[in-house]
């Protein structure tokens, strides 16, 4: 604290208050509740319960689906973002991709129920091209598809920003020094965009772990995530202790993911 400027404390106050009231305090309350059972007794039973087969399996399947969603979102977003940086009116194209994310999530989800239904346009199309109608709604596929659709804008944005910041002279230099397109991508472009990819993974993977309305509306509850389990513990079973315990683990998982994906690698000069 070399800089003893009193103004600094004044400027820091809103941030500190925010952190205390809306980040720290809720976490403390959740942790506190997780140590109580239904009758209000102090207990570790909730934590023991979490490690029984059912919640362990739930966690595993949540991770699996979150992984799938993040993987496909990345697979689609990276080339898209790259393509966008090469277009003439890139801000306009970017905006067109971002706009759907302004529409309410539930509204979009309900739209998919109609689209993917037995008599919806997707099945009509499959019918017309001779593949025949399929059961699309209430499958793993529909769940991953809709989730990827919803998360894609959040994946594209950070990747686009990091790609856009690359100085084109670096690419020219790479070419001049004899690198082909693949080597340029591998050795120059990719390392310079890993930060964007990492933050993209963060903003997709973490919410994907706790998706909950889509699991019911699109997957017909055949996919259960940690988010669904928490909702049920609070609203149906009214076991706030167990709900909080699951939430505590979710926070721990999120924290681990943040740590894993934010480790700054050295060697990249900005």
């Amino acid at each position: 604290m070399r800089n003893k400027n009193p103004l600094r404390f004044i400027y820091a106050t809103p941030y500190a208050a925010w952190l205390l009231l809306f980040v720290l305090a809720p976490i403390v309350v959740i942790v506190y509740y997780s140590f109580f059972d239904l009758s209000g007794q102090l207990t570790l039973a909730n934590y023991r319960n979490f490690f029984t087969s059912i919640y362990f399996k739930l966690t595993m399947s949540s991770f699996w689906y979150a992984f799938l969603i993040t993987f496909f979102a990345l697979l689609i977003s990276y080339p898209t973002a790259y393509f966008l940086t090469k277009t003439k009116h890139k801000q306009l194209w970017l905006l067109l991709i971002i706009i759907p994310s302004w529409i309410n999530l539930l509204l979009k989800t309900y739209a998919f129920i109609g689209l993917m239904g037995k008599y919806g346009p997707i099945n009509a199309f499959l019918e017309a091209v001779g593949i025949g109608g399929q059961q699309i709604l209430f499958t793993d596929f529909s769940f991953v598809f809709v989730s990827v659709y919803i998360f894609i804008p959040f994946m594209i944005l950070p990747i686009f920003n990091s790609l856009d910041k690359i100085n084109p002279t670096l690419l020219d230099a790479s070419k001049d020094l004899g690198a082909n397109a693949w080597v340029t991508f591998k050795r120059v472009i990719w390392p310079m965009t890993t930060d964007g990819v990492k933050s993209g993974i963060q903003v997709v993977f973490i919410p994907a772990l706790s998706l909950f309305m889509i699991t019911r509306l699109i997957a017909g509850n055949k996919v259960i995530t940690l988010g669904t389990a928490i909702e049920q513990q609070f609203l149906v079973t009214q076991n706030w202790g167990m709900g909080s315990t699951i939430a505590v683990f979710l926070i721990i998982f999120m924290f681990l993911i943040m740590v894993l994906t934010s480790g700054k690698k050295g060697g990249i000069i900005k």
């Binding site: 129920i113 059961q135 709604l137 209430f138 019911r216 509306l217 997957a219 017909g220 509850n221 055949k222």
Partner: peptide
Amino acid sequence: NVKAVIGDE
């Protein structure tokens, strides 16, 4: 046999 487990939908 179960196609989906849903609510009012």
